[in-house]
């Protein structure tokens, strides 16, 4: 198969551009929206009495603090990798066709769209989302081959957030959030995975 992804990516008009982080103007506009929203909320809530007004005033104060953070740019920035980053459980889980808990039973070099990748065979124990087969193949960039890589070691267990490919194989939704080691039935790293998903996968 021709390196179509690589070819098309090479013509990306923004390929040599740093991620387009929010400018000062964008942050200022958002801060304005947030403050406006909080003020509207306050006015609505004031009709309900003092107690809710106090709550609404708290919301205004919170929005003001967040606005200040936005304006100062002191944000909880995601990792600066050139791949998607998901800020919420909903976004992360929504990006995955299926989420599996499984053990890596094999790992071998392979090719994906002209790129050298590792193909990990994974024995599925539990899943959430679209049903995968009992054993699936996950294509990933092997650890040590660049900045956006992940290690899936045979004999180890992981929770994998997966995107299905037309050829039946899977890829991780990203390298920073797509694979979480499982040790003794628990996630061994921080993850935005929701409580419901953890419960369904038996790693709650």
């Amino acid at each position: 198969m021709r390196r179509i992804r690589g070819l098309i990516a090479s013509a990306d008009p923004l390929r040599d551009t740093a991620p387009l982080a929010p400018s000062g103007r964008a942050r200022a506009e958002l801060a304005h929206h947030l403050s406006e929203g909080a003020t509207m909320s306050e006015l609505r809530e004031r009709k309900g009495g003092l107690a809710v007004w106090v709550t609404a005033a708290g919301a205004v104060a919170a929005a003001a603090v967040i606005a200040a953070v936005l304006l100062n740019g002191a944000d909880p920035a995601p990792p600066s990798a050139d791949e998607p980053y998901y800020a919420t459980s909903e976004a992360l889980e929504g990006a995955a066709d299926t989420i599996v808990r499984g053990s890596v039973v094999s790992s071998e070099p392979g090719e994906l769209e002209g790129l050298t990748v590792s193909l990990a065979g994974v024995e599925v124990k539990e899943f959430v989302g679209s049903e995968p087969g009992p054993t699936i193949v996950v294509a990933h960039t092997p650890a040590g081959s660049g900045p956006e890589t992940v290690a899936l070691d045979p004999g180890h267990e992981y929770v994998l957030l997966l995107d299905s490919m037309p050829d039946g194989r899977y890829s991780l939704v990203n390298t920073t959030q797509g694979a979480v080691p499982v040790v003794d039935g628990r996630l061994a790293e921080d993850s935005l995975l929701s409580v419901a998903a953890r419960d369904a996968l038996g790693v709650g």
Binding site: D12, L20, L34, V69, L70, D75, P78, Y85, A87, A91
Partner: peptide
């Protein structure tokens, strides 16, 4: 909710901005 929205802004603004800039 406001904090979640700010999280969405920080995470997705670069992608949305890039989508528009490419077009």
């Amino acid at each position: 909710m406001t904090a979640r929205f700010v999280g969405l802004f920080e995470a997705e603004y670069p992608r949305v901005h890039a989508y528009l800039a490419r077009r």
